[in-house]
Design a protein around this nucleic acid. Structure first.
Length: 320
DNA sequence: AAGAGTGGCAACCGCGCAAAT
DNA sequence: GATTTGCGCGGTTGCCACTCT
């Protein structure tokens, strides 16, 4: 077994600990901007920082990263966190992956300091155990045990085909609909399919990307800012959820907040079905994940809790 | 005004995992 | 195959600012 990195316990105790000074921040920032991240222990050494690599990494990820979103959590983000936590438990990094600009540490702190207490005070029960993920029902604010209503989603005849996500009933607020839309769009879960052009007031780019084709311009991530509007998501059937890794391929942002996606690759890890997202392959993405949608499933058969038991359907969810 | 209590947040710690050697 | 290295994660700690008494 390796020895854990001993921050501050080696190098004759020369390594600094504790709060970062503005000078240290500047050094680290300048170094990474000029040289990229690379190996963190090299970063610490080459940037002339008396810090361990681990500390540098943490500082960068939680504070210096330019794509970080500062400020208080919005109510929508809070809803999303609560819902994701009900699904994922204390997997803060996975939750953070669905909240662009937020760090796992930030979400964890927010949960422990604010949400936990609020839920306790309002007597809302959520699961915190990762080994038994349950469904959070926003309508009742209770864990949903009804297998037939998809954990707050009401199924309709309209979507009883493979690959369909249930349509929301009007009883849900648009905010909640938005939240639910996006939390359901986490990678590997079924996404909207043919004939379901959605228009929601107050969309949210969930970090996994809602990609659509803009004629010959290629594929874009629609992101009008957090909880901006997402209109007419995609051409029929073109909505898909790329692997989270793909999000990292976004390498430029234009002034319309349309994020160009370069060389997006959709990986289907569970079945080794690595899929380049081109016209020839798009039908595969529509088909679904693994074998889940290769058969005609009715909504009644699409039992979320049941699906959760089989992690093979959810390549991004690790309930082991 | 001052001390105690509390909350929020940044950072550290220890562990597990995967890749490299 | 064993060991080393580096990274990432979740849990925890400690500092600081604010509020309360």
């Amino acid at each position: 077994m390796r020895k854990p990195e001993q921050c501050g316990k080696n190098n004759n105790n020369k390594l600094r600990k504790g709060l970062w000074s503005p000078e240290e921040d500047e050094k680290l920032m300048n170094y990474i901007i000029n040289n990229g991240q690379g190996c963190w222990s090299d970063v610490a050494r080459n940037a002339s920082l008396q810090r361990c690599g681990k500390s540098c990494r943490l500082r960068w990820i939680n504070y210096l990263r330019p794509d970080l979103r500062r400020g208080a959590f919005s109510p929508q983000e809070e809803e999303l966190i609560i819902h994701l936590h009900s699904l994922l438990g204390n997997r803060w990094s996975q939750i953070a992956a669905r909240l662009p600009g937020r760090t796992d540490n930030e979400i964890k702190n927010f949960w422990n300091s604010t949400i936990k207490k609020r839920l306790k005070n309002t007597n809302i029960s959520t699961t915190t155990t990762s080994d038994s993920p349950k469904v959070y029902n926003p309508q009742s604010h209770e864990l949903n045990k009804d297998h037939n209503n998809m954990g707050g989603f009401i199924s309709t005849q309209h979507n009883q085909h493979a690959g369909f996500m249930p349509i929301f009933t009007s009883s849900l607020s648009s905010t909640m609909q938005t939240t639910m839309i996006n939390t359901m769009n986490i990678e590997g879960l079924p996404v909207l399919d043919h004939g379901l052009n959605m228009q929601v007031d107050g969309g949210y780019f969930n970090g996994t990307g809602q990609c659509f084709e803009d004629n010959n311009k290629g594929f874009y991530l629609e992101n009008d800012g957090i909880f901006g509007s997402v209109n007419n998501i995609g051409i029929e059937g073109d909505m898909f959820v790329p692997h989270l890794e793909s999000v990292n391929t976004i390498n430029s942002i234009d002034h319309n907040n349309h994020h160009r996606v370069e060389n997006i690759t959709c990986k289907r890890e569970t079945n080794n079905n690595s899929t380049n997202f081109d016209d020839n392959k798009r039908s595969e993405n529509r088909v679904g994940v693994g074998n889940l949608f290769q058969e005609e499933l009715t909504i009644g058969e699409w039992d979320l809790e049941e699906l959760m038991k089989d992690v093979s359907y959810f390549p991004f969810l690790d309930f082991s």
